[in-house]
Design a protein around this nucleic acid. Sequence first.
DNA 1: AACGCGCAAAAAATCGATATTAACGACAAA
DNA 2: TTTGTCGTTAATATCGATTTTTTGCGCGTT
Lengths: 230, 230
Amino acid sequence: MTILPTPSVPRDKAPVSSATQNAYLTLRKLIVTGELNPGEKLKIETLRDRLQTGASPIREALSLLTSDNLVERLDQRGFRAAPINRTNFEEILALRCELEDMALRKSLANRTEAWEENAVLSHHRMIRAQSNGAGDFEDLHKAFHMALLANCGWPILVKFCSQLYDLNIRYRYIAGKAMNYQSRDVSAEHMAILDAIVARDADLASDHLLSHYKKTGAFLSGILDGIDLA
Amino acid sequence: MTILPTPSVPRDKAPVSSATQNAYLTLRKLIVTGELNPGEKLKIETLRDRLQTGASPIREALSLLTSDNLVERLDQRGFRAAPINRTNFEEILALRCELEDMALRKSLANRTEAWEENAVLSHHRMIRAQSNGAGDFEDLHKAFHMALLANCGWPILVKFCSQLYDLNIRYRYIAGKAMNYQSRDVSAEHMAILDAIVARDADLASDHLLSHYKKTGAFLSGILDGIDLA
DNA sequence: AACGCGCAAAAAATCGATATTAACGACAAA
DNA sequence: TTTGTCGTTAATATCGATTTTTTGCGCGTT
């Protein structure tokens, strides 16, 4: 229906990414942003039409999303978008706090100039996108948070955090963009985190980070009350 | 005329498992046990022969294993078994300690009769397989450890732990079965963990669990010194 | 000899088609 | 009415074949 942000270079030169990769990224965005509803059946044929590609890349993409906990595979009956519920939301929030706390502290313990500069840079890009009204704020927001953890030296942990980030932000989309979380002074929270990092104060940085997540979490939790979390 | 035995059951639909599931489980075992070497190229055609199945299930299984960190996907050049190295090994061990500690404490905090009994039961089955010399000791060993964490109420965390378990045990296989870790008194260590759980002493249980892992880790680390961790 | 170019072989990625399986509804028997 | 069976239909899972991409080699040029 809507034209998807797939590179409109279907089959000419410079196929920078495979059909599978495209399908994976597109589907993930569709699910995270809630354009595909939680619990919704994901029929291969339908998605084939929507993504303009063959069934094989779709299947492979869905398999990958299964491992990201964004899609469930039903025995011999195909796939569906992962359902949502309060318990799941709370687990994601809590786990995220535990794991990001760990990763952030280790990043700081391994502090390097390059890492610190990259954190500042990521922050700048995010802020700029925010004021520009550029469409890629969400991507840059994730990039900022991941940049903070990137120096922990544990790639598997970072991957876990990245997955949890996506799972969490999905709830935000589902709760509705209305809640536009600029309503809180999120910028100040981001700044506080960054400042603590630059000041190399791990406890303070962690405090700010977790409080940032928990505030968003509490806010979301309230909104979710009014939503059917079947 | 004899009445034909119209089967009330349609047909002997033996295994509920799909070709993909079979391929996934088989390949995972092959990689975890080291029958497929770390870094080894995994050619679809070759695996097709070996597993006696089509290319599609193989591809899908490999995709899934990619998310388990057991297989790497190279841009447009197929798959290979994940390489190994000391850094990776150390991350797995350390992360495992962090996450299992967390899960174990939560399991104990949520303690129920059923869970406690299941832990005892899992332990019994593992011990029995050990003395029987039954071939499924490894599976039961994993089952025991997972049973300890199962009550934490955070399924995503359990899944992470399960993945890390597999990644870790792979190193044990690679280090060689020669090291037969019965050489240490592992049984006593298991018993100590279980006892602490039954006694509901979280700190003690966690101590025993982590020491169990760290001892195995240190042992393995020594063995890995003599192995090419390219 | 080293380097780049282009062709041929191999492998991966993808597509279209077939075979399997589950969902649905009608219909007959109890 | 209720229950259980049988087709019918829709969707999935899988296969075989085609298209793309990579790899490796040979050859000519500097």
